[in-house]
């Protein structure tokens, strides 16, 4: 059974890029969220094995979303996605419970490694 992934990002382009890498490597993308609120709602609904979480998003930012998801499921496996120069936010996300971080632009191998290690 392929591990399931929920993608969270406010740009369709980044979601598409991630979906492409994730699906090519044997994972199943079960949903896409375009902001934090949607991510929290979809997490409850889909109960994915892993979540990729963008930081800067409208309505609810990624860090708040991580905190909300961790409240619902302390064992959630969230990988935070950041742009260059967002180190303090990445640290905050990790402290909030994210298991790993990815830096844009994404390196496909890094994405796969993260899914593999965090998913196991």
């Amino acid at each position: 059974m392929a591990k399931t992934v929920l993608i969270t990002d406010d740009t369709a382009f980044m979601r598409m890029t991630l979906r492409n890498v994730i699906e090519k490597n044997g994972y199943q993308v079960v949903g896409e969220a375009s902001d934090g609120e949607e991510a929290v709602a979809l997490y409850q609904e889909l109960q994915p094995d892993m979540v990729t979480m963008d930081i800067t998003m409208p309505k609810m930012d990624g860090i708040t979303a991580i905190k909300e998801i961790m409240k619902i499921d302390p064992k959630a496996r969230i990988i935070v996605c950041s742009a260059m120069g967002q180190k303090p936010m990445v640290l905050e996300a990790l402290s909030a419970g994210a298991k790993d971080f990815l830096v844009k632009p994404f390196d496909a191998e890094r994405v796969v490694e993260s899914l593999r290690k965090i998913g196991s």
Partner: peptide
């Protein structure tokens, strides 16, 4: 490795 300090942080964590 990108953001080495953050990676170190995950090791500490």
């Amino acid at each position: 490795t990108i953001l080495k300090s953050v990676r170190v942080f995950t090791v500490f964590q």
